[in-house]
Design a protein around this nucleic acid. Structure first.
Ligand SMILES: [Zn+2]
Ligand SMILES: [Zn+2]
Ligand SMILES: [Zn+2]
Ligand SMILES: [Zn+2]
Lengths: 132, 132
DNA sequence: CATGTAAATGTTATATTATTACATAGTGTT
DNA sequence: AACACTATGTAATAATATAACATTTACATG
């Protein structure tokens, strides 16, 4: 479960936009979409994005430089994220799989490194694109 | 095992630089370092990087926009990559763990999506930084 | 060896993504 | 009120990546 947190004005505007969007959104596309609400500069967008990522309301899809609303309240504050990405239509969804997240959260190798966080991105073709 | 491939001049210059480097390198740092060898424009670097990634000689660390030489000949042509990243010293190493790669390569969820590729990045503190 | 073709290179300009620096304003606590 | 903390506004700039176009090289095949 996510800790409750009151979003500020800009954070709310930007979260609502991402949350309503059908796919991941890029920062400058977000900027374009919120200019009518008074958010005029990239930094205003990036600051809100940083905070939203920090509190786990959104995630960054690193391979796409894009942001998506968290679809999975159990991914503890952005510390354990997994996504499936269609390389054809660029559809992205968050994977919610207890076995996978347990496996990765408990993963340890010989390096002696303690992992506190991971991000996994799977690529392939979604059902739709596969059947084309 | 990687298929043999003859690197072109620019590809070789850039691969050698990355391979000798102690950590991941960023594109413009690469550019700066190879200017004395006649590679003058970003595009020349990015083209070589694209090809090197494609043939599996290097990998991109997506969360860092940086490139590292493959340390693991068995990661089939960049289709299955895993890294550990120290959030303090930014040290990166490629994880070579058969169980992990099998687990992920065979991963399937209910979405009906067939995954042909994945990239996993673990974050934490390395041994050195942990003991500071 | 001539010809075709795919891959690589060179060059300029430009697009996209992200941060620095500094000033101001709101929010909640003591 | 005084303080600390978070958020906002604004301008400038840094860092990352691609588009477009001309030319050259590598190399297979007739
Ligand atoms: Zn999530
Ligand atoms: Zn698709
Ligand atoms: Zn590798
Ligand atoms: Zn470290």
């Amino acid at each position: 479960m996510q800790k409750q947190y009151t979003l500020s004005r800009n954070q709310k505007i930007i979260f609502d936009l991402i949350d309503k969007s059908r796919g991941p959104m890029k920062a400058y596309s977000i900027l374009f979409n919120v200019q009518k609400k008074g958010i005029k500069a990239p930094l205003q967008v990036y600051r809100a994005l940083d905070k939203l990522v920090e509190i786990g309301k959104i995630h960054k899809i690193e391979s796409r430089n894009a942001f998506i609303a968290c679809q999975n309240s159990s991914c503890q504050i952005s510390k354990a994220t997994a996504f499936s990405i269609c390389e054809s239509c660029e559809d992205v969804s968050e994977i919610s799989n207890t076995k996978l997240s347990k496996y990765l959260s408990n993963f340890a190798d010989s390096s002696g490194m303690k992992y506190s966080k991971y991000n996994l991105e799977f690529f392939g073709l979604c059902k739709k694109c596969k059947s084309k």
